[in-house]
Design a protein around this nucleic acid. Sequence first.
DNA 1: TAATGAAATTAGAATCATTCTAAAATGGTG
DNA 2: CACCATTTTAGAATGATTCTAATTTCATTA
Lengths: 128, 128
Amino acid sequence: MVLKQMTKYGKEILALIEASHDHLTAEQVFHALRERCPGVALATVYNNLNRLWQEERIRKISVEGMPDRYDRIRRHDHVVCKGCGRLLDVDLGDLTAQLERAAGRPILAYDLKLIDLCQACREKEKER
Amino acid sequence: MVLKQMTKYGKEILALIEASHDHLTAEQVFHALRERCPGVALATVYNNLNRLWQEERIRKISVEGMPDRYDRIRRHDHVVCKGCGRLLDVDLGDLTAQLERAAGRPILAYDLKLIDLCQACREKEKER
DNA sequence: TAATGAAATTAGAATCATTCTAAAATGGTG
DNA sequence: CACCATTTTAGAATGATTCTAATTTCATTA
């Protein structure tokens, strides 16, 4: 895929996502962007997020029952809390070769989520 | 978690999912169930899918941009086509211990998707 | 500089999956 | 049977995202 020149908002949004260590939803990106570009439309945010995603400049993370979240592309994995969906970064290194061997077939990439229960959710669990 | 007795539709839906080697959406479960139970409501399907999921009797798989799909619980992983979202089963065995070691923390479970491009999508890719 | 055309942006409607609501049906248990 | 909890139901509501068609922007060419 040939990467096209980025647009004004494309650049802004990419910068926002790269700078953030959270995992922003489209809505959160929209709010953050508004501070710098008051007039911008929500559709523009979705347009650009989709474009950036297709160009593989950002990652999209989906967890059941929550809005998609966007993340910088640099290789890393995630720990998702089973209770509240809280997402943390973790890096297990590049497992591609290993997984290909185990699967017996070549892959383009993989998506690995570790599931745990965060401190807060563990407390709540106990109460019951 | 103590498993409760299953309800009439709960059983039907669980059986449907266990029997199917596809990865059914709620809508597909609804259609299939209708053949055996013509009057059943879509809400009932969602109710039961959610209950079964909470009781960990079925799995829920979410891939960005598509409706959630449901799967039997037996341990296995998935290969997702990057182009069309087609989902195949693959079993890499239980990597829990290995992943815990790599992550340096205990986990409850994990969710691993291998990404590839299916034959059909590879053809299409070429055409461009 | 004016004209052209492609791509980006916009506002709002539309869609789709899913959840919610409140009422009705069902199913044990005493 | 009477009771109460649970399940089911139909349809409305919600929330995230996409679509649409008009408008704006911007680079390129005449």
